[in-house]
């Protein structure tokens, strides 16, 4: 399903350039739960962004469901992000001015779902993450754990097969972190493919297998 081969990513900052990924191979089958670990700066987020089609590799190939991502246009990538991938960030990345319900609705706005469909799905998801009574609250009125649950609900809005989470528990206390991990485990059991970046071996223990990065390379 996810097939990365010899992925390289180089960042150019003025005259200096930085090789964040130096040839990464990664194969993830549908329904797998994978954790990615590695020290800070090893390229975990960079790899996640590429898998999530937020960024494109400088070299190497990435096939998603048998289609080469390299040839896709900006809007085609947007469509992939919209339908196939749910992204959960360490810092939640919720729209600060929008309510919980409006944040969850966001991905559905970009694929032509009717207002009625959107409302029903938002309701469903709020229920699923146990925040129905918080639907009209803004992110600033929610705890970190609650915000991350809203972010997960948002990632699920279009029911994508793949969930990508970049240190989803990194900003949370251990109690909230446990709750979030329970949600991800549940989603995996329901059939989602889950790829998660973490620093925490306890968190990684929830996954089927762990990929370790060091200086932009996979180490095993």
């Amino acid at each position: 399903m996810i097939d990365c081969r010899a992925i390289k990513k180089t960042f150019h900052m003025g005259s200096a350039s930085l090789e964040a990924l130096r040839g990464v191979d990664l194969l993830v089958k549908a329904g797998e739960f994978i954790s990615i670990m590695g020290p800070s700066g090893s390229g975990k987020s960079t790899l996640m962004n590429i898998i999530g089609c937020l960024d494109t590799p400088s070299a190497g190939t990435y096939d998603l469901d048998g289609r080469a991502v390299a040839g896709m246009s900006f809007d085609q990538l947007a469509e992939v992000r919209n339908r196939k991938i749910g992204f959960v960030f360490q810092n939640f990345n919720l729209l600060p001015y929008a309510t919980a319900a409006e944040n969850i609705e966001l991905p559905m706005l970009f694929n032509g779902k009717s207002a009625r469909q959107r409302r029903r799905r938002v309701e469903e998801l709020l229920q699923q993450v146990g925040l129905l009574e918080w639907r009209q609250h803004r992110p600033s009125e929610l705890s970190g754990g609650q915000q991350q649950r809203i972010a997960i609900a948002r990632a699920l809005a279009n029911d994508p097969p793949i969930l990508l989470a970049d240190e989803p528990t990194g900003n949370l206390d251990s109690q909230s972190g446990e709750e979030i991990m329970a949600i991800f485990s549940g989603l995996w059991r329901q059939g989602h493919t889950v790829i998660m970046v973490t620093h925490d071996a306890g968190v990684a223990a929830h996954s089927q297998r762990t990929v370790s990065l060091l200086d932009g390379r996979v180490v095993t």
Binding site: G52, L54, F74, D75, A78, E79, R81, N82, R83, F87, N93, L94, L95, L106, P107, L109, F110, N111, R154, N158
Partner: peptide
């Protein structure tokens, strides 16, 4: 950025 990540087109 958030909207683009959620699949907003240009």
């Amino acid at each position: 950025g958030i909207k683009l990540a959620m699949g907003a087109r240009r």
